[in-house]
C-alpha cells in the first residue's frame, strides 16, 4: 500500500477520535461555561469537578431503550441519525492542522486531504448533514418533528447560500479554494508602517467574517437560530421521538459540526495554525475555542428568532450585504491587479 495513503488513513483515524473526544468534552465545557454565566456550579458530582459527566451521559444513552414509534417510517427513522452522524466529521478531512511532520522516518501531512476545491467540498458535506434532520423529522410521524424538519430545510438552504457567498471574498483575495493554500497565504506578515500585522483575512474581509459567523451559527442550528429543535416551541423538534443512542447521534452530530465549522472559520479567517510565536495546531485550537465560546455565549444571552424573521434576515439583510461585499472585493482586487 502506498505509504502516503496509509499515513493519510492513520491521520484520519486520529482526527476522528480526537474530534469525538473533543465533542464529549465540548458538552462538558458548554455546561460549565453556561453555569458560570448563569451563576451556577455546573456538573461537579461525577468524577473530579464533574469531568466524567460526558462519559456517564454517553454510557447511559447507549444502554437506554431504543424506541421506534409505531407509525414511524421505520427504515428512514433508523437511517436518519446515522446520516447526520457520519457526515458531520467527514467535513473535517480538508482542514489543515499544520505543516507536515516526520514520524518514524515517514513524512506525515497534518491534513487528511488537500484537494483544490476544499472549501466547496466542506460546504457540500456540511449541507448534506441536514438530510439527516429532515428525514428524521419526516419519518418520526410526529407533527412537532415534521415542523422541525421543515424549518431546518428552509433554514439550511437559506444560510448555506449566505455561508458560501461570504467566503467568496476570501477566494477572490487568495485566488484559491484549497484550504492549505489559504492558510499559507495568511502566514505572511503585513507591514503597515510601524505595525506588523498578520495577513489574516479577518482584517481584509471583516464584513464577510461577521456574516460568516452568523451563517455558521444558523448552519449548525444553534441559538438564536435553533428553530429546528426550538425547545420551548417544538419540544425537541426533529429529535422529539428519538431516544437512546439514536438521539445521541443527533446530539453528537450537532456538536461535531460546531467544532468543525469553528475549525473551518479559524482556518479561513483567522490564519489557521498561524500564530505570533511558534506556529502550530495549538493556535488553531485556541482560535476554534474562541469560536465555540462565542457560540455558548450567544446561547446564554439572546432570545430566539421567529421563523419568518430568520428567513427575512437571511434574504433581506445578509444576502444584499454579502453581495455588496463580493462586488467591492472584486473591484479592489481588479484595481490592485491593474485591470481597471
Amino acid at each position: 500500500m502506498d505509504a502516503n495513503l496509509l499515513s493519510s488513513y492513520i491521520f484520519a483515524v486520529v482526527v476522528l477520535n480526537v474530534l469525538l473526544g473533543l465533542m464529549a468534552y465540548m458538552t462538558y465545557l458548554e455546561r460549565k461555561l453556561m453555569a458560570a454565566m448563569q451563576d451556577r456550579v455546573g456538573p461537579n458530582r461525577t468524577g473530579p469537578v464533574g469531568l466524567l459527566q460526558p462519559i456517564a451521559d454517553g454510557i447511559k444513552l447507549l444502554v437506554k431503550e431504543d424506541i421506534i414509534p409505531k407509525h414511524a417510517d421505520r427504515r428512514i427513522f433508523l437511517l436518519a441519525p446515522l446520516l447526520s452522524f457520519v457526515l458531520a466529521p467527514v467535513a473535517a478531512a480538508v482542514i489543515p492542522f499544520g505543516d507536515s511532520i516526520t514520524v518514524f522516518g515517514h513524512e506525515v501531512n497534518l491534513y487528511v486531504a488537500d484537494i483544490n476545491v476544499a472549501a466547496l467540498y466542506f460546504l457540500a458535506i456540511g449541507s448534506m448533514g441536514v438530510y439527516g434532520i429532515i428525514l428524521g423529522g419526516y419519518a418520526s410521524a410526529n407533527r412537532y418533528s415534521l415542523l422541525g424538519g421543515l424549518r431546518s430545510a428552509a433554514q439550511v438552504i437559506s444560510y448555506e447560500i449566505i455561508l458560501g457567498l461570504s467566503l467568496v471574498g476570501v477566494f477572490i483575495l487568495s485566488g484559491s479554494l484549497s484550504l492549505v493554500e489559504i492558510v499559507n497565504q495568511q502566514s505572511e506578515t503585513l507591514h503597515l508602517g510601524p505595525l506588523q500585522l498578520p495577513n489574516w483575512f479577518i482584517l481584509s474581509q471583516p464584513l464577510a467574517f461577521v456574516i460568516f459567523l452568523i451563517a455558521a451559527v444558523a448552519e449548525t442550528n444553534r441559538a438564536p437560530f435553533d428553530l429546528p429543535e426550538a425547545e420551548t416551541e417544538l419540544i425537541g423538534g426533529f429529535h422529539t421521538e428519538y431516544s437512546g443512542f439514536r438521539f445521541s447521534f443527533f446530539f453528537l452530530a450537532e456538536y461535531i459540526s460546531m467544532i468543525v465549522i469553528s475549525l473551518f472559520g479559524a482556518t479561513i479567517f483567522l490564519g489557521g495554525t498561524d500564530g505570533p510565536i511558534r506556529d502550530g495546531v495549538w493556535w488553531l485550537a485556541l482560535k476554534a475555542f474562541i469560536f465555540l465560546f462565542f457560540y455558548i455565549w450567544l446561547r446564554t444571552t439572546v432570545p430566539r428568532f421567529r421563523y419568518d424573521q430568520l428567513m427575512g434576515l437571511a434574504w433581506k439583510v445578509l444576502l444584499p450585504l454579502v453581495l455588496i461585499n463580493i462586488l467591492l472585493t472584486g473591484f479592489i482586487r481588479l484595481w490592485g491587479l491593474g485591470m481597471l
Partner: peptide
C-alpha cells in the same frame, strides 16, 4: 446540573 440532570422536554429522552 450538579447531579448531571439535564431537563428534557421530550419524554423519549
Amino acid at each position: 446540573e450538579r447531579f448531571g440532570m439535564l431537563y428534557r422536554a421530550s419524554p423519549r429522552q
